[in-house]
């Protein structure tokens, strides 16, 4: 389903979580997977190369996933970049805030491989 050439950025402050998501992405067929541990370092990665998908956690310091999303949606060059939020924040207010900020899909932890795959398919086809 996905293009193996598509660059994917995984943003999470938990190293284990990045490892889990990266492994799942590899199983799905992605080969170009990059990592960042918070929103700020994600922006640095985004300035280095073009990405086709970003999968980000919410709770990170110094820049949260929501702040990262808003920043990306405010940049002409990046405003259309598909963005999936994967987070333990499952309150309705959180989902609504992310949707209003322009998130393409929202996955609540704990999730399974099938959920991740279906959400990625829904976002990038």
């Amino acid at each position: 389903m996905p293009s193996s050439q598509l660059n994917v950025l995984v943003v999470d402050d938990f190293q284990s979580m990045r490892r889990i998501i990266k492994n799942l992405l590899e199983q799905i067929g992605f080969t170009q997977i990059f990592e960042a541990e918070d929103g700020k370092s994600a922006l640095a990665e985004l300035s280095k190369r073009e990405f086709g998908l970003i999968i980000s956690d919410w709770n990170m310091a110094p820049m949260t996933g929501l702040e990262l999303l808003r920043n990306i949606r405010g940049q002409d060059k990046l405003k259309s970049l598909p963005f999936i939020m994967i987070t333990a924040e499952s309150k309705t207010d959180n989902v609504v805030a992310a949707k209003e900020a322009g998130v393409d899909n929202y996955i609540v932890k704990p999730f399974n491989a099938a959920t991740l795959k279906s959400k990625i398919e829904a976002v990038i086809g």
Partner: peptide, 17 residues
């Protein structure tokens, strides 16, 4: 192996809580 990977995501959630 994938199931083991997914089960390990508990650590992120318990860590945050």
């Amino acid at each position: 192996a994938t199931e083991i990977f997914m089960a390990c995501s508990f650590q992120d959630i318990t860590g945050q809580r």
